[in-house]
Amino acid sequence: MMKKSRRSFLKVAAVSAIGIGAAPAISLSSSSTNSHGSSHAAKSPNKGAKTAKRWGMVIDTSKLTEEVVEHIVEACHKAHNVPDFNHEVDEGKYPKTRPVNHKQEVKWIWEEHFHNAFPDKEDEFLADKFKHLPFLVTCNHCINAPCVKACPTQATFKREDGIVLMDFHRCIGCRFCMAACPFGARSFNFRDPRPFIAETNPDFPTRSKGVVEKCNLCAERLAKGEQPYCVEVSKGAIVVGDLEDPESEPRKLLDKNYAIRRKQALGTEPSVYYIM
């Protein structure tokens, strides 16, 4: 009995994950537990939802300043209930919380130096302005995503519109995807993240210990016709749109500017571009 209903659940989840541009898989999965997920599981795109053949991101590095980068990281992490290990734990609510190991932190989008973001493009004569530029790195939503291939339970999957998503409730925490990702985009919840969330956003699920997570390109916002959080606060430094549409904003930028992608030689085909 149990098995059958699970299987039919899987079918629904798979069909909706493959077929539709919204975020049904997330909402479906989050509705199965008590975490604060958006439980209005849609099986067809919302009216006004942003759709694309292949979502992609263009980052204009000339517009990245320390301040902008900080805002972007904060907006993303706050909205997605990403724990901050520097947050002082509320001892009343979470007594006896053990000290943190900062090497076990969780992050979706963060700042790196050029030679870390592009280790294969390290150059001793690189212009100073690039050496000190705060580069932003995040999940590349690769066309040939190694994490999707590695996942033994299809908890990480690729939507037809290019977004690589995760089902936090199916993930068994084997961390094969973390070994597979060439961009270090994935984080594992080595512990319950909730004591380290200053203010929980009720519109997005919190995670339990023992699962992997990463940037979801704000699939939950695109489904509502809104721009990703990072785009919203980036002061024009980040643009997200349909890479297959020649009229889209990202494509117009790519037409006019020279842009690079991380570790192109590996053939994963990242969907995040950096205008130099």
Binding site: K103, Q104, K107, G173, M178, F188, F190, D192, K209
Partner: peptide, 11 residues
């Protein structure tokens, strides 16, 4: 308590 008890990390 989760795998926080181990020496493993994000990297």
């Amino acid at each position: 308590n989760g795998l926080m008890t181990t020496g493993m990390s994000r990297d």
